[in-house]
Deep mutational scan, measured.
Amino acid sequence: MPEGSASLQLAVGDRVVYPNQGVCRVSAIDVKEVAGQKLTFVTMRREEDGAVVMVPEGKVLAIGVRKVASAE
């Protein structure tokens, strides 16, 4: 991610809310080559049905992904 860009610090195992998809758990953060460029992807699995969603790390905030609020 370019320096100075806002990002959401995620780790494998974090629970997040993905708008219009529901609650997901981060299952992987991997670098993949797409069209000759190396990009970091956040892979999330929906808790409702296990569907897998992959989002480029740089788009996580723009999409509206946020961490699940704690009970505290």
Score class of each variant (00 low, 15 high):
residue 1 M to R: 13
residue 1 M to V: 12
residue 1 M to D: 11
residue 1 M to G: 13
residue 1 M to H: 14
residue 1 M to T: 12
residue 1 M to I: 12
residue 2 P to V: 12
residue 2 P to Y: 08
residue 2 P to I: 12
residue 2 P to R: 07
residue 2 P to Q: 12
residue 2 P to L: 11
residue 2 P to E: 12
residue 2 P to N: 12
residue 2 P to G: 12
residue 3 E to P: 11
residue 3 E to F: 06
residue 3 E to N: 12
residue 3 E to Q: 11
residue 3 E to C: 04
residue 3 E to W: 05
residue 3 E to K: 07
residue 3 E to H: 10
residue 4 G to N: 12
residue 4 G to T: 13
residue 4 G to K: 11
residue 4 G to P: 12
residue 4 G to A: 13
residue 5 S to K: 10
residue 5 S to L: 11
residue 5 S to V: 12
residue 5 S to E: 11
residue 6 A to V: 11
residue 6 A to P: 12
residue 6 A to L: 11
residue 6 A to H: 13
residue 6 A to I: 13
residue 7 S to N: 11
residue 7 S to V: 12
residue 7 S to F: 12
residue 8 L to T: 08
residue 8 L to N: 07
residue 8 L to K: 07
residue 8 L to S: 08
residue 8 L to Q: 08
residue 8 L to D: 08
residue 9 Q to E: 09
residue 9 Q to F: 10
residue 9 Q to M: 09
residue 10 L to D: 00
residue 10 L to F: 08
residue 10 L to T: 01
residue 10 L to G: 01
residue 10 L to N: 01
residue 10 L to C: 00
residue 11 A to I: 09
residue 11 A to N: 10
residue 11 A to Q: 13
residue 11 A to V: 12
residue 11 A to C: 03
residue 11 A to L: 08
residue 11 A to P: 01
residue 11 A to R: 14
residue 12 V to C: 00
residue 12 V to L: 06
residue 12 V to T: 03
residue 12 V to N: 01
residue 13 G to M: 02
residue 13 G to I: 02
residue 13 G to W: 02
residue 14 D to V: 03
residue 14 D to M: 07
residue 14 D to N: 02
residue 14 D to L: 04
residue 14 D to W: 02
residue 15 R to H: 06
residue 15 R to Q: 06
residue 15 R to G: 02
residue 16 V to I: 13
residue 16 V to G: 01
residue 16 V to H: 01
residue 16 V to Y: 05
residue 17 V to S: 07
residue 17 V to D: 09
residue 17 V to K: 04
residue 18 Y to R: 02
residue 18 Y to P: 01
residue 18 Y to A: 05
residue 18 Y to K: 04
residue 19 P to N: 08
residue 19 P to M: 08
residue 19 P to V: 05
residue 19 P to L: 08
residue 19 P to E: 08
residue 20 N to D: 09
residue 20 N to Y: 08
residue 20 N to A: 08
residue 21 Q to R: 10
residue 21 Q to N: 11
residue 22 G to Y: 04
residue 22 G to D: 03
residue 22 G to N: 03
residue 22 G to E: 03
residue 22 G to P: 02
residue 22 G to L: 04
residue 22 G to K: 05
residue 23 V to A: 05
residue 23 V to R: 04
residue 23 V to E: 04
residue 23 V to P: 04
residue 23 V to G: 02
residue 23 V to F: 14
residue 24 C to M: 14
residue 24 C to R: 00
residue 24 C to A: 02
residue 24 C to Q: 00
residue 24 C to F: 15
residue 24 C to D: 00
residue 24 C to W: 15
residue 24 C to N: 00
residue 24 C to G: 01
residue 25 R to F: 10
residue 25 R to T: 13
residue 25 R to L: 11
residue 25 R to N: 03
residue 25 R to G: 01
residue 25 R to M: 11
residue 25 R to I: 14
residue 25 R to A: 04
residue 26 V to T: 01
residue 26 V to Q: 01
residue 26 V to D: 00
residue 26 V to C: 00
residue 26 V to P: 00
residue 26 V to K: 00
residue 26 V to S: 00
residue 26 V to H: 00
residue 27 S to T: 15
residue 27 S to H: 08
residue 28 A to L: 05
residue 28 A to H: 07
residue 28 A to C: 00
residue 28 A to V: 04
residue 28 A to Q: 07
residue 29 I to R: 02
residue 29 I to N: 00
residue 30 D to N: 10
residue 30 D to G: 11
residue 30 D to Y: 14
residue 31 V to F: 07
residue 31 V to H: 06
residue 32 K to L: 14
residue 32 K to I: 15
residue 33 E to P: 03
residue 33 E to L: 12
residue 33 E to C: 05
residue 33 E to G: 03
residue 33 E to V: 13
residue 33 E to W: 14
residue 33 E to I: 14
residue 34 V to Y: 08
residue 34 V to N: 04
residue 34 V to Q: 05
residue 35 A to Y: 09
residue 35 A to H: 13
residue 35 A to K: 10
residue 36 G to P: 00
residue 36 G to M: 02
residue 36 G to H: 03
residue 37 Q to A: 08
residue 37 Q to D: 05
residue 37 Q to Y: 07
residue 37 Q to L: 11
residue 37 Q to M: 11
residue 38 K to D: 03
residue 38 K to L: 14
residue 38 K to V: 09
residue 38 K to P: 06
residue 38 K to G: 03
residue 38 K to N: 07
residue 38 K to Y: 12
residue 38 K to R: 10
residue 39 L to Y: 09
residue 39 L to W: 07
residue 39 L to I: 15
residue 39 L to N: 04
residue 39 L to A: 06
residue 40 T to H: 04
residue 40 T to F: 06
residue 40 T to G: 03
residue 40 T to K: 11
residue 41 F to D: 00
residue 41 F to P: 00
residue 41 F to T: 04
residue 41 F to S: 01
residue 41 F to A: 00
residue 41 F to Y: 10
residue 42 V to Y: 13
residue 42 V to W: 03
residue 42 V to P: 00
residue 42 V to D: 00
residue 42 V to M: 03
residue 42 V to C: 01
residue 42 V to K: 00
residue 44 M to Q: 00
residue 44 M to A: 00
residue 45 R to V: 15
residue 45 R to P: 00
residue 45 R to L: 10
residue 45 R to Q: 09
residue 46 R to Q: 02
residue 46 R to T: 02
residue 46 R to C: 14
residue 46 R to D: 01
residue 46 R to S: 06
residue 46 R to Y: 02
residue 46 R to H: 05
residue 46 R to N: 05
residue 47 E to S: 03
residue 47 E to M: 06
residue 47 E to H: 03
residue 47 E to D: 05
residue 48 E to Y: 13
residue 48 E to R: 14
residue 49 D to N: 06
residue 49 D to F: 03
residue 49 D to C: 01
residue 49 D to A: 02
residue 49 D to K: 01
residue 51 A to H: 09
residue 51 A to I: 09
residue 51 A to C: 05
residue 52 V to K: 06
residue 52 V to D: 05
residue 52 V to T: 09
residue 52 V to H: 05
residue 52 V to S: 14
residue 53 V to W: 15
residue 53 V to P: 01
residue 54 M to I: 15
residue 54 M to D: 04
residue 54 M to E: 11
residue 55 V to A: 06
residue 55 V to L: 14
residue 55 V to W: 05
residue 55 V to Q: 04
residue 55 V to P: 01
residue 55 V to R: 02
residue 56 P to R: 06
residue 56 P to W: 14
residue 56 P to G: 05
residue 56 P to I: 11
residue 56 P to E: 15
residue 57 E to R: 06
residue 57 E to L: 15
residue 57 E to N: 05
residue 57 E to F: 15
residue 57 E to P: 06
residue 57 E to G: 13
residue 57 E to Q: 09
residue 57 E to V: 14
residue 57 E to K: 08
residue 58 G to L: 11
residue 58 G to S: 15
residue 58 G to W: 15
residue 58 G to F: 14
residue 58 G to H: 15
residue 59 K to R: 10
residue 59 K to M: 15
residue 59 K to C: 15
residue 59 K to G: 07
residue 60 V to F: 15
residue 60 V to I: 15
residue 60 V to W: 14
residue 60 V to A: 14
residue 60 V to P: 02
residue 60 V to E: 04
residue 60 V to H: 04
residue 60 V to M: 15
residue 61 L to H: 13
residue 61 L to K: 13
residue 61 L to V: 14
residue 61 L to R: 13
residue 61 L to I: 14
residue 61 L to S: 12
residue 62 A to M: 08
residue 62 A to H: 07
residue 62 A to C: 06
residue 62 A to E: 15
residue 63 I to E: 14
residue 63 I to F: 09
residue 63 I to A: 12
residue 63 I to G: 08
residue 64 G to W: 08
residue 64 G to K: 06
residue 64 G to A: 07
residue 64 G to Q: 06
residue 64 G to R: 05
residue 64 G to I: 10
residue 65 V to W: 04
residue 65 V to I: 15
residue 65 V to D: 03
residue 65 V to N: 03
residue 65 V to R: 04
residue 65 V to C: 07
residue 66 R to K: 14
residue 66 R to V: 15
residue 66 R to C: 09
residue 66 R to L: 14
residue 67 K to S: 06
residue 67 K to P: 08
residue 67 K to M: 12
residue 67 K to T: 06
residue 67 K to I: 15
residue 67 K to L: 15
residue 67 K to G: 05
residue 68 V to C: 13
residue 68 V to F: 07
residue 68 V to S: 06
residue 69 A to T: 13
residue 69 A to F: 08
residue 69 A to M: 09
residue 69 A to E: 13
residue 69 A to C: 13
residue 69 A to K: 10
residue 69 A to L: 09
residue 69 A to N: 12
residue 69 A to I: 13
residue 70 S to L: 11
residue 70 S to W: 10
residue 70 S to A: 12
residue 70 S to R: 09
residue 70 S to V: 10
residue 70 S to I: 11
residue 70 S to E: 14
residue 71 A to Y: 09
residue 71 A to V: 12
residue 72 E to C: 11
residue 72 E to V: 10
residue 72 E to H: 11
residue 72 E to R: 08
